Computed example of a mutant assay.
Amino acid sequence: MLHLIKLSVGTEDVSDLAAWQADPRGHSPDGLPRHVTRMWPKRAEEVLDGGSIYWVIKGVILCRQRVLRFDEVDRGDGIRRCAIICEPDLKRVAATPKRAFQGWRYLKPEDAPRDLAPGREAEEPLPPALQAALSEIGVL
């Protein structure tokens, strides 16, 4: 199994990402959330073997979604694009700082942040900057 990690550009927090994904324009034809990218993962089978996409928001990994499949997207311009189709449920993870990068990257399971403990997912999240600072000093 292998995960993906991706910046959620322009997103302020997890609820903002959830609202963006609730918009039908961001859905696959079967109504699931998707993210369209130009690059097709060469290791797709490993990701589809239980992998997730981890979302970096304001420099902090805050949540993940299980990847269900990859669909080809044709926008009529001859460029083959990849839609990463995900479960609708955003699972919050332990806040983990992450520097900015372009596109998406692979993330090994042993390097992935752990899910928040049961019962903590309903807690009001801290602001991303505070989460990052607390994570850097080992409090989170």
Score class of each variant (00 low, 15 high):
110 E>K: 10
112 A>I: 09
53 I>K: 00
87 E>M: 05
115 D>K: 03
114 R>F: 08
59 G>T: 13
71 D>H: 05
74 D>N: 14
75 R>Y: 07
46 E>R: 11
11 T>I: 15
22 A>Q: 08
2 L>D: 01
106 Y>A: 04
124 E>Q: 14
76 G>F: 08
66 R>A: 08
112 A>T: 09
33 P>S: 11
132 A>F: 03
55 W>N: 04
98 K>Q: 15
103 G>P: 07
67 V>E: 03
113 P>K: 01
87 E>H: 09
20 W>Y: 13
16 D>F: 05
39 M>R: 14
59 G>I: 13
98 K>D: 03
119 G>C: 13
140 L>Y: 00
62 L>M: 12
83 A>N: 12
33 P>D: 07
136 E>N: 09
72 E>I: 13
43 R>V: 10
9 V>N: 11
94 A>K: 09
1 M>W: 07
71 D>T: 05
45 E>L: 10
82 C>W: 09
120 R>S: 12
34 R>V: 14
135 S>V: 05
55 W>E: 14
14 V>D: 04
88 P>N: 06
38 R>F: 09
136 E>H: 10
50 G>I: 11
56 V>M: 06
56 V>A: 07
1 M>G: 13
64 R>G: 08
139 V>R: 07
9 V>H: 11
116 L>N: 07
71 D>Y: 03
7 L>S: 08
64 R>L: 10
92 R>F: 04
8 S>H: 02
82 C>E: 12
35 H>C: 12
37 T>M: 08
16 D>Q: 04
23 D>L: 13
100 A>R: 10
4 L>H: 04
120 R>P: 04
74 D>Y: 06
132 A>D: 11
8 S>A: 15
106 Y>D: 05
126 L>E: 11
34 R>E: 14
114 R>I: 12
59 G>S: 13
131 Q>R: 10
31 G>D: 12
133 A>Q: 06
41 P>K: 03
35 H>Y: 15
126 L>P: 01
60 V>F: 03
102 Q>P: 05
3 H>W: 06
65 Q>N: 10
94 A>P: 00
56 V>H: 03
74 D>C: 07
80 R>V: 14
20 W>H: 13
48 L>E: 08
131 Q>P: 01
46 E>V: 03
111 D>R: 07
116 L>K: 07
45 E>K: 13
51 G>F: 03
91 K>Q: 15
51 G>V: 05
20 W>L: 15
87 E>A: 11
50 G>D: 13
